[in-house]
Every structure is written in C-alpha cells, then in structure tokens.
Design a protein around this nucleic acid. Sequence first.
DNA 1: CGGTATCCTCAAAGATACTG
DNA 2: CAGTATCTTTGAGGATACCG
Lengths: 117, 117
Amino acid sequence: MAHKVYDCSPGCPVEATLEKIGGKWKGVVLYHLLEGVHRFSELRRKLPNVTQRMLTKQLRELEDAGLVLRTVYAEVPPRVEYCLTDLGQTLRPVVVALKTWGDAHGGSTNHLHSSAA
Amino acid sequence: MAHKVYDCSPGCPVEATLEKIGGKWKGVVLYHLLEGVHRFSELRRKLPNVTQRMLTKQLRELEDAGLVLRTVYAEVPPRVEYCLTDLGQTLRPVVVALKTWGDAHGGSTNHLHSSAA
DNA sequence: CGGTATCCTCAAAGATACTG
DNA sequence: CAGTATCTTTGAGGATACCG
C-alpha cells in the first residue's frame, strides 16, 4: 500500500480520502458495514463478484487504515466478524454522499447492460 | 475507460461514483473546478505533479463523464477553459465531503507536509 | 499554449489451488 | 469457514518527445 506523497496544494485531502476508500471494492464493503457487523461469508454473499482473495485484501487494507475492526473468534468452525471502527463510522457521511450521488446520477453516461441491441 | 458491469447489489452506486471521480487526479481537479473556470495552464500550476498528458487524460475522462465542460477559443495563442457542467456541480457535496473528511482524518496514516515550519 | 503519440513500469486486480 | 500462496493479466499512471 505504501504512503503517497501529497505534495499538491489544497485539494489534497480529497485525494487522501479517495486513497483510502478508492480500492476496487472498499466503497461497497464500507457501505455494507455501515449497516452493521458482517462476517466474512456474509460479505462474500453480498459481493458475488469479488474473489475471497480480493475481499480479504480490501478488508486488510481497511483494517490497516484503521477503518475496520476484525474480530476473530477462536471457535471450531472459524468465525471472523468485521465492523467499522469509530474512525470508520466518521466516513458515513462520505459514503452516503457517494451512494446518493450514484443513485441519482449513476445512469447518466454509462448504459450498463442497457439496450443491448 | 470502457464500461464496467455493476452487477453487485445495493452498494453499487458507491462504486459507480468512485469510478467517475476515482482517477488519480480527478478529485483534485474537480475540487479546483468547484471554485470556478480554469484554463489548462492554470490547472497545471495548481497540480505541479501531474504531467500534461495525465492532466489532459483526466480532463477528457471527466468530460466524457459529462462532469466537465471544455471550451476551446480559436485564438492565436490557443486558450482552453474548463468548468463544471451542471452535472459536475451536483458533485459538490460529494467532493466537499471527501475534502472535509480528509482534512479531519487525513493525518491518521500519512503525514503530508503538515507542520511545515 | 495546449495538446498528441510512444514507450515503459509497476502494482492493483483476478484466477486458481491449497490449508488450519 | 476463512483464509494464504502463486502466477498472470491488465491498464492506469508516468516520462519523453514532437506538433498545430
């Protein structure tokens, strides 16, 4: 992950934030975690297109960033739960803003699976 | 560029938005454009670390996304101005949220030039 | 001034297989 | 169940040079 050098001027906090939530799946993960604790398999269910490797990686990076807390239960059938840290919770308005905008304007330029004619 | 297939469930608007503003410099560019029209060289000044190739690219992508308007003045010394479209303006709360968060928590893992004597 | 056109690098993302 | 360990691919990002 490494550290970036933010030597550009005043807009940088924007990039700094994007760096942390900008991973391919971090946004969605964060979004789901906003709704509460999830175990690994739950997240996998909600993100069918992410391989477990990627999910683990994104989760670890979020953990590293101090946004997500990973709790391992030393049980026979292994259980690991993920939830947001306090810091992670502070991202709520950001994630909500992203979601709101996406809902409102997401279909503006891309037509996804739209009219496949 | 290309089109992404957003086949994940409800969190996707988040990713959709990130896709559009997630380029390496798009956030900062957007941020600066929030403050008004800029010509190419102005943006370059404000983003010393971006090569003109990258800046052009990011700008073109933002234009493609319908977020930025590019106006070319057919003058002797070429002049090109960039500004936000109406759609781009709707991103304001998002960019502001990103900046606000970055300002408040950006220093958690990275130390920018912070207290530069 | 405001770009293209080329070439290169490197790391993020993905596929697959194995494990405690 | 919840991961690691490898290997490969892709393309975003960057350096450099030239053009209208």
